[in-house]
Write a protein that binds this DNA or RNA. Structure first.
Lengths: 370, 370
DNA sequence: ATGAAAGCGCTAACAC
DNA sequence: GTGTTAGCGCTTTCAT
């Protein structure tokens, strides 16, 4: 083929589809696109297998051959095709991570933990954000299966036990974060949501408050995590001889806007409320806003608590009392547990990490004179 | 093969490696693992290609055959292998998204936009979080290349122009968010960072303030985005006949903790400061904290501004004046632009979306009596 | 220490 | 409408 581009005439003999022509100011670079293992092998006069040995660091290859191959790889701009590699080896070195909502700062921290542990082991992480939609949860799990990831880490979701179990069953290995599944195929890494919420509630009751509102997070179905926290609340109330009026429990989406609306309504319906216990920090942010709007002093009149200890909980209108959950660590441990399972040597089936009550300004003694 | 498990004797004739035996309380389920297209075809007595037609919805297949195949797929639990599919078709239907920091709520919103647009087009999104590390940025771009994604969307990063250009060059299609690259291979979707920051500064100056501190975000290298915002600040100061004292400009990591430290120091060094202009909302959160610690009233004594309008900026100690950036939209447009490029019909090379000054409580008239 | 051949699961380009 | 034949780019046997 002959073509004239500006002042340059190119003579190209190879397959035209595989040629990449780069024109910069002073020079013309003709490169082959889609360079394959075979191309590298050909350039070096060795077999494909030898090149494969070099890029995978398996078996011995003479130092000389190796460096020559490395050089050719660099020169040709070769990048191994992961798809082909996975297909042939039946291993993708990718793990999947399904999270319900990236916009909740709780999950990005888990992501970071998973990534950290994965990178260390030479794995890559494919993150799927379900965006609070249970249809998307299904889609994510299916996509990851089609991608033939080596394993999946799933954060607490709305999928029912049965469906989730059968989804996980289909994966080579799986780990659940903050969700239990007795007799399920998955490893479990979690904190004790029930008792942690209990500690929050006890802390609030200890300051002499009795009329307690609860802001729950649930749309259609209640997740395991919503359930545990709510039960923790109820159990602690009961343990203190207090009745829980169902009208003091409201639910909303785990987002600032929605919880603000819900908190407003609750405060209007029950102006005598002395504390707002929230499912998580995002909801607590809305609760604090609602109090601020109404000029309700926190904690002098109303105490507010969150859960998770997201990065921003200390800079809210009032620094938030919450439960510090080791998010990064949760991610790291989940990944490690997954690798054990991928390798076929699971040592533990469940790990419970510590979560600690973190007392800041949004709780404390009630000042009656208000 | 014959094996005795408990009371059950199994006679299995197929390849033992491909058998999955599920023992539940009452029954034994023998399933084939790793079901392939060929298995489905065999079960139905049709050719592989016909099955392929059904799962891809290409060409016509008689309704009867189709429903039979669908049934067999369901019964066998078949899941197409994306790796094999990509390898054969040279299309992955995956796009890559590289973001610098998931823990900054700015990026999750972009993610959602990209995902939204991608899902609509049948694409999946592989997110790579560089975790504020330029080495990780490289790794991400390389991983995506090895994965043979159909295109990449890259959010403003620290990689130098030359290196980024050559990375993008290697991809089939690419779009940059909030970063320009003249003559580069990538499409561009951005907001006008320079002028938006200018508007923020003008707004602050208009309230009569003159001693302005600037909290920049940069570690080793300044990103395009850091640069634009800083320049916007400097240009507006100059346009108002004000000198910028370099010691009023400090830089820190874009995280609450670090900006708190930096803001403290700046306020100590220059107690006469009247405003803190921040690179983004996360840094502004730290600035507000520093003011709160010192009992400095905002905005009566010091005004504080952010940039991005992250979800939490309205619930900070003082509701933050900031620039509302259409994050979701940025993601959607970037994805759409990428698809045009993947399809080989790019219509636009650069799109500039509107960003608006959002005035909340952290700015306003200075109250001299303080 | 290196190579040859087969095949991973799928799609593409043709047949029929 | 449906089947056949080749690969896609790599790893795996098994040779040598």
């Amino acid at each position: 083929m002959t073509g004239t581009f500006g002042l340059v005439t190119l003579y190209v003999s190879a397959d035209i589809k595989n040629i990449l022509i780069i024109l910069s100011e002073k020079n013309v670079i003709v490169k082959q696109k889609n360079v394959t293992l075979a191309d590298v092998a050909r350039a070096d006069g060795v077999s494909a297998k030898t090149v494969s040995r070099v890029i995978n660091n398996t078996d011995y290859v003479s130092a000389e051959t190796r460096s020559q191959i490395l050089q050719a790889i660099d020169q040709l701009g070769y990048r191994p095709n992961r798809m082909a590699r996975s297909l042939a080896s039946n291993r993708s070195f990718i793990i999947g991570l399904v999270i319900p909502d990236v916009t909740n700062p709780f999950f990005p921290e888990i992501m970071r933990g998973v990534e950290h542990a994965a990178l260390e082991r030479g794995y890559n992480v494919l993150v799927y954000n379900a965006d609070l939609d249970d249809q998307r949860e299904r889609q994510g799990l299916t996509l990851l299966e089609e991608t033939r990831v080596d394993g999946v880490i799933v954060c607490t979701m709305k999928l029912a036990d049965d469906e989730l179990r059968s989804c996980l069953q289909r994966h080579r290995a799986s780990v659940l974060i903050n969700r239990v599944m007795p007799g399920g195929p998955a490893g479990i890494v979690r904190v004790d949501l029930f008792h942690s919420m209990g500690r929050v509630v006890q802390h609030v009751l200890d300051s002499g408050r009795r009329k307690i509102g609860y802001l729950a997070a649930n749309r259609s179905v209640m997740s395991y995590s919503s359930q545990q926290r709510l039960w923790g609340f109820e159990a602690t109330m009961k343990a203190n001889g207090l009745l829980v009026d169902p009208d003091y429990i409201r639910s909303c989406a785990a987002a600032v806007e929605d919880s603000l609306r819900t908190a407003r309504q609750l405060l209007t319906d029950h102006p005598d409320i002395e504390a707002l216990i929230c499912y998580n920090d995002m909801i607590a942010a809305g609760a604090l806003e609602a109090c601020a709007e109404r000029g309700i002093p926190v904690p002098d009149q109303v105490a507010v608590t969150g859960f998770d200890d997201i990065m921003f909980s200390s800079v809210f209108k009032v620094a938030l009392t919450t439960v510090h959950v080791p998010k990064f660590e949760l991610g790291v441990r989940a990944a490690q547990m997954l690798f054990e399972r991928i390798d076929g040597h699971p040592t533990e089936s469940e790990v419970v990490l510590n979560a600690e009550l973190l007392i800041r300004q949004s709780t404390g003694p009630r000042r009656k004179e208000v």
